[in-house]
Simulated scan of single mutants.
Amino acid sequence: MTASFLILTPPGEPAATESAAFVRDGFRWTAFFFPALWLLAHRLWLWGAIALALQIAATVLTGSPGLELAGWTLALTVSVLTALEGPYALARAREASDWTLRSVITARDLETAEHIYYSEHAPPEKPAAYALPASDTSSKAAPPPAIGLLGYDGD
């Protein structure tokens, strides 16, 4: 199964920096089961506080006679929205902090996504310096003339 990875780099860093963040864009089971904790753990303070307030409201509703279905629906909605949109909110929060979205890569896993990204953004290798063959200094004879053939040394 493949997933999309959003690659973000910190402000002022080049594309091939090792501090690039790879955010998997997809359903997160931990965010589904613990929405407020997941958001707070990822420093999404406002969204975490909203999710926590909604979870408390859902708990109160499930304890009220006749409103149990509304409470379960609210709790399920918060969990599903956090699990689906949490990674995107994380990427948007980093972009708001001047992080740069460098690429979106589809890969099987994080290791493959890193390999693809860093192979595309690796600094260019310097071409090998070509050494000219050393001239034979043992013979003092001048090379024969090259009639119209530039670079031909008579061999």
Rank of each mutant, 00 (worst) to 15 (best):
E111M: 08
L46F: 13
T30L: 14
F5G: 00
A70T: 05
A3Y: 02
L90F: 02
A142L: 09
S19D: 12
A89N: 00
D153A: 05
L69Y: 07
S103A: 15
L37P: 00
G63V: 05
L46E: 01
D109Q: 08
T30K: 15
L149K: 11
Y152I: 02
P145G: 03
L8K: 00
L61I: 09
G71Y: 04
R92C: 04
H42L: 07
A129G: 05
T2K: 14
P65R: 09
I116K: 09
D136N: 15
S97A: 15
E68R: 15
P123G: 06
L74H: 08
D98T: 00
G63E: 03
E95W: 01
W99M: 02
S103P: 00
P133S: 05
S135I: 07
Y130I: 12
L37K: 13
A113N: 07
R43T: 12
G71L: 03
L76E: 06
L54P: 00
R92W: 04
E111A: 13
A113F: 03
G86Q: 07
A122W: 05
S138Q: 09
T82A: 14
T30N: 15
A21G: 01
G63C: 11
L101E: 04
E111N: 08
P35R: 02
P143Q: 06
G63Y: 03
G48S: 12
K140W: 06
F5H: 00
A131S: 09
L69H: 10
P35N: 05
E18S: 15
G151V: 09
Y130K: 14
K126M: 04
P87S: 11
S79D: 08
Y130S: 08
P14F: 03
F34Q: 11
A83M: 06
A96R: 15
